[in-house]
Simulated assay, not measured.
Amino acid sequence: MKAVIHYGVSGINGISIQNVKKDKPKPGNVQVRIKAAGLNHRDLFLMKERKEDLDKPVIPGSDGAGIVEAVGDGVQHIQVGDEVIINPTLNWMHASNVPENLEILGIPTDGTFAESAIIPAENVEKKPSFLSWEEAGVLPLAALTAFRALFTRGQVRKGEHVLIPGIGGGVATYALTMAKAIGAKVTVTSRSEEKLKHALEMGADNAIYSNSDWNKSLKGELVDLIIDSIGPAVFPKFLSVLRPGGRIVQFGRTTGDQVEISLSLFFRNQFSFLATSMGSKEEFKDMLHFIEEHRIRPVIDQVYPLDKAVQAFKRMEEGNQFGNICLKI
């Protein structure tokens, strides 16, 4: 079968398209004929930071959807021919029981950027029928991350004001649509006028430039919840626009790992700083129910064939996309 392979060199330069052996599913697993898969910044980070075992070829990719083509022994609830969507979080069943070591499909294990992938049976769910293959293929990781960030960790409520810095990525666009679906007010930021315009078309209430004075842009209005993946480049602005008792939910580090916080300002205003990453099987099922109830469709930036995976990753690395980048397989 044809697959995206990473080995030999760190980063995008280690990507090639090769024919690899197609294995059979072991007990408890299913084999899915992948119809579409989504790119994530996690893929870029892992390929860039991969230093050890570079001589071992691995198939990246966490997102995907497709048709079950074989089932391993002991699998009862899934049949050949089922249309499924893949939950990329491994061995995490319940939202409250965060695993000590979070495991995600794709690097160091083989992932979804291939014509076929072997997945634990507990990690596939019925594909929402109203979604196209491309929409279902890009949904899982980013939508699950946004859902947990907003609802499990952020506890967002109707009427609250949510700030989403750096609109354009998959998680940010899901967070915008999900927050609006429950009646929250949403402000987004970006350096791109085009992305700000697109966000307003999607329903954002305010769209402000990342390098502006946020207090002036918001006319002094404070926010209740900030959902952020950028980090140091914008973090210093957060505490000046966050309402006393407000929450920050952090799920990424696009501009670095280290931030400085004024502890006196932080505890005097009784802010909450919360972390999140991915989500559980329980939350994945709740997320699917939520997007079906509200008919939320992923925003797809561009669709590339499998053999154009390098070009797809270059677009993500350049940060030009608005929404999800898809590989059609």
Rank of each mutant, 00 (worst) to 15 (best):
I296W: 10
N87S: 02
S10P: 09
K51M: 11
E193P: 02
R50T: 00
L225D: 09
D43T: 11
E221F: 01
M47I: 08
V20M: 14
L90W: 09
F267M: 01
V299Q: 15
R297N: 11
S116Q: 13
S262Y: 10
P232R: 05
E52Y: 07
T152I: 05
E194G: 02
G203T: 14
L288D: 03
L139N: 03
P99Y: 02
L306E: 06
S212W: 09
K285D: 01
Q155G: 07
A233M: 06
L263T: 15
L239M: 15
I230Y: 05
E194P: 03
D307S: 11
I34R: 10
M287S: 02
I227R: 00
A121G: 10
E193A: 15
Q258D: 13
P88E: 01
M93Q: 11
I261N: 00
G81V: 12
D110Q: 13
K127F: 09
A184K: 04
F151H: 00
S272D: 08
M1Q: 07
G28E: 03
V124D: 02
V259I: 15
T145G: 07
A309Y: 01
K328F: 04
I104F: 05
T89F: 10
V234M: 01
L44Q: 11
A142E: 07
V223D: 12
T189A: 02
G256T: 07
I227E: 02
V124Y: 01
V156A: 14
A184Q: 03
E282N: 09
G159A: 12
K22H: 04
A207Q: 06
V20H: 10
D63C: 07
A146W: 10
T177D: 14
V303Q: 12
P27D: 11
I104M: 11
S229M: 14
G168A: 09
R33A: 14
G8M: 11
F238W: 03
G64I: 10
D73K: 15
Q302P: 02
K328M: 05
T255V: 04
E49V: 02
A199I: 01
I104T: 09
R33G: 09
L54Y: 01
I59D: 06
E160C: 11
L242R: 08
Q321V: 01
I85F: 02
D53R: 15
K328H: 13
G81E: 10
P88M: 00
G220E: 10
T189M: 02
E282K: 11
V4L: 14
V30D: 10
A204I: 02
I67K: 03
